[in-house]
């Protein structure tokens, strides 16, 4: 399988600098060559029915945070709102 690093980076919302592309592509190629060595196992349902864990009930979160607490770590906040670049003209 040949790796197209520019395409995978784009899908991953990453930008790989020109000078690092060759090294990334060759490393990724080696990793993919390694991991593709898997046995063919007869298709079966992926859900493990013997799993003892049960999913929680769909209940509302009880923890309470103030707007200030929730936005304190945001890089750009104005009037209590998260600021992002304009996306609609």
């Amino acid at each position: 399988m040949n790796i197209d690093i520019k395409h995978i980076a784009k899908l991953s919302r990453l930008h790989i600098e020109e000078e690092k592309q060759e090294k990334f592509e060759s490393d990724m190629q080696k990793i993919v060559d390694m991991v593709e060595n898997l046995p063919d196992i007869e298709d079966a349902p992926l859900l493990d029915e013997s799993n003892p864990m049960t999913l929680r009930k769909d209940v509302a979160v009880t923890g309470k945070f103030t707007r200030d607490e929730l936005t304190k770590n945001a890089p750009h906040v104005t009037a209590g709102c998260l600021v992002v670049p304009k996306t609609v003209e």
Binding site: I5, A9, L14, M28
Partner: peptide
């Protein structure tokens, strides 16, 4: 981290 994100995206 970039390598793992890209491997995961690929697979």
């Amino acid at each position: 981290v970039k390598r793992r994100i890209m491997l995961g995206t690929f697979v």
